[in-house]
């Protein structure tokens, strides 16, 4: 953390690089402060957070049950795996034009991009986590009188939960990528939009400030998921 920060301070203080390419930390700080005071930053941040929550949230809601079905039942894997295995290699950004034609320029196409960008990976990763539940654990559960549904609910899901949260953590980072991409295209608010706007006026200090905010928001989400993971997965530690 400290080394790149010091390098930045040193480099901008030396005057070797023009202020409009590499703003000084002080300039970035005051640009950030100014945006925060005007209320823009908070509005952008909440717009972005809402998109992540909605788009990635939907992806989690769909991918976790789907992944559990794929990981637990051979028929489920046979049905979905080939399609999802192929779809995940299509770059989500390439869907933007199509999504705009289908859903228009507004919110739905942005949420859809986040969804498309994360749902396939999260499904496959969930299925992999479910597949590593030991056979012997399932067998013993059947001998204790559990039905298929009870084994799924009382054995497969709790055993997989820490791994599922790990998958969500990895894909949350991807969700952050896609939300900014979505906002670069056509929007009136959001952190990505703020970057495009600042670029138009060559306000590199603002771009830097927004990048830092995006980074901090991502780290916050990651820390929250890590805490959840260590609470849920205490037994595995």
């Amino acid at each position: 953390m400290a080394i790149p920060l010091l390098a930045w301070i040193g480099l901008s203080a030396s005057g070797a690089i023009s202020e409009s390419f590499l703003p000084s930390p002080q300039a970035v700080w005051s640009a950030g402060l100014e945006m925060a005071r005007s209320g823009d930053l908070l509005r952008d941040l909440s717009a972005t957070a809402q998109r992540v929550l909605l788009g990635f949230g939907l992806a989690v809601l769909v991918s976790v049950p789907l992944g559990i079905v794929m990981g637990s039942f051979r028929a489920g894997a046979a049905l979905f795996e080939p399609v999802i295995g192929l779809l995940r290699y299509l770059p989500a950004s390439a869907f933007i034009p199509l999504l705009i034609i289908w859903l228009g320029l507004g919110e739905p196409s942005k949420v859809a991009l986040l969804f498309v960008g994360t749902v396939f990976f999260n499904t496959l990763m969930t299925a992999d986590v479910v597949r590593i539940v030991p056979r012997s654990l399932l067998d013993v559960s059947y001998t204790l009188g559990a039905s298929r549904g009870e084994v799924l609910r009382k054995v497969v899901v709790p055993h997989s939960l820490p791994g599922i949260i790990d998958a969500i953590r990895v894909n949350a980072a991807a969700a952050f990528n896609f939300v900014v991409v979505a906002e670069l295209v056509n929007s009136t608010e959001g952190l990505g939009y703020r970057i495009v706007r600042a670029q138009r006026f060559l306000q590199t200090d603002r771009i830097f400030a927004v990048l830092i905010v995006i980074g901090l928001a991502g780290v916050t989400l990651d820390v929250a998921l890590r805490l959840l993971r260590s609470r849920v997965g205490r037994w595995a530690a």
């Binding site: 012997s136 654990l137 067998d139 054995v155 055993h159 037994w235 595995a236």
Partner: peptide, 14 residues
């Protein structure tokens, strides 16, 4: 019919 295998069949989260 209760079954007890060789090892590692406890529910680790319970």
């Amino acid at each position: 019919r209760g079954l007890v295998p060789q090892a590692g069949t406890l529910y680790p989260w319970r």
